[in-house]
Amino acid sequence: MAPDAEPKVLQSAKPVELLQSQPSFFFANLQPILLLGTLLFSFKSLVADPVHTLLGLAPTVAIVQAIYCVVCLPSTGDVAAPTPKPGQKKKAVKPGQDIWAKVIPAFLSFTLTIVLSAPLLYIIVILFGAPLTTHHPHTLLFALHLALLTTPHLYYVHGLDASTWLRLASLQQPIDESYGMSLGACVGAWVGAIPIPLDWDREWQKWPVTVVVGMYVGAVVGKLAGGYLFKGWKIKLA
């Protein structure tokens, strides 16, 4: 990227607004309930058999995330569509304009999530201390879930623009609902590792139950905090 172009991009970064429609609001609020509910009801089997439970949950989570993208979020093209004048009132998005214009970016987002994010996150998770020589399916599925919670909506909204992704990676992007969710999931997964070394000798202390729970709770907390509390904030690293 050209270094002189960067400041301009930085200034233009804005928090992503949800689509202004009834289904959009409805599903945006339903999504955390769905995510946490699914986790809550499958917690027992998650403890008993993490691999099969995580494998079974993955499509569900993917569908919830996909609906969230399609129903609630503007796709890359929408954001790129220029708003001619700053003061002008926002154009109402026509619902059901062209379903394929939404499904195709969503499909691409999920392809990228599985092909790009999941392996990358797998490596990062390993570097953070996940078991390397054992628990391969556990860690792989955990990375897949982490990818599903962190990246599809970002791909859907921001596309593959390098400078945007650099801003996302360096916390320069203003906080919004989807970005908050991604950050929350990462922090939650990290925090979720805390109970593992305690000597309580509980079943649920085993890998990767606590980090999965931490990740889901973190994602929801991050989404809510990003959507309401810290919307538009920029993290400042001094």
């Binding site: 201390g129 916390l171 990290w190 070394p197 000597d199 690293l237």
Partner: peptide, 28 residues
């Protein structure tokens, strides 16, 4: 007591987070 016995986990856990934070900050 278990964290005193397993203190290493704390440092093994903090260090990657710090590294990522430092990297992210470096990008800015």
């Amino acid at each position: 007591s278990s964290y005193v016995e397993e203190e290493q986990h704390f440092w093994y856990w903090m260090t990657p987070a710090w590294t990522v934070l430092l990297t992210v900050k470096g990008l800015t």
